[in-house]
Amino acid sequence: NINYRGTANWSQKHLRWLTELVLPHPAQHIVLQEFLHTINERISRLERLDNELTHHVHQWRYYPVVKAIQAMRGVRLLVATGVVAELGDLSRFDHPRKLMSYLGLVPSEHSSGGKRHIGAITKCGNGRARRLLVEGAHTYRYAANISTDMQKRQEGLPKDIIDIAWKAQLRLCKRYKKMIAKGKHYNL
């Protein structure tokens, strides 16, 4: 039984470890080499596609919105571009609740008479944009801070956008901790 003792799977360190493995049968080694070759090809393809996206998104009319959204924690170029491409002009939502409803990120409600039961999120609306935002939201489980990567993304943005992003980070990190303390599963 072969186990990797490192922390991050598919990192450069992990890939080096895989190339240094000595397997008992030559056929196993050939299959491993083929798998590693496929992984390296896919990583190169992703890098090429990321470069193309970066090049083209800078010329897009919604690039200022993409740049502003990246001030948020957990939102880099790919997530910001995907969200803006899925939602289009965000000014059509006159209140954040309407945007959240459009994304299906509001709780469902079952009411009858005087009883009111609030359930899970509705998940109606744009599933791709919702998935991108949920993916980015996982970063709020860590303590609020401004990383050097985030500082670079925020360069050139107006102070009010940076302030909004910081307030949102504080609020969401606090809310996550409160929900965990109440017994909510970390994935929910």
Rank of each mutant, 00 (worst) to 15 (best):
A8L: 15
I146Y: 06
T54Q: 14
H110R: 06
S147T: 15
L90N: 07
W10I: 03
L77V: 02
A137Q: 04
A8S: 10
G6D: 03
A27W: 04
I30A: 09
N51W: 06
E155Q: 14
G113I: 03
G114K: 12
A144N: 10
Y4R: 06
L23Y: 13
G136C: 04
R16Q: 14
M72P: 04
A68V: 03
D160G: 07
H14C: 10
A181W: 02
S11C: 12
A8F: 15
K123G: 05
M100P: 04
S112C: 11
M150L: 15
R61T: 13
Q151T: 06
R42Y: 06
I39P: 00
I69Y: 00
D163M: 04
L172A: 04
T139C: 05
D149E: 12
Y62E: 05
H110V: 10
H117Q: 07
V134E: 11
W17I: 07
E135N: 06
L105C: 09
E52A: 08
A85H: 12
G74I: 12
K152L: 08
V134H: 05
R61G: 07
D160L: 07
Q70C: 12
K184H: 13
E20R: 14
G114C: 12
P96Q: 03
S101F: 02
R45T: 05
I43K: 11
K182T: 08
I39F: 03
G74H: 13
V83S: 00
F35C: 15
K13R: 15
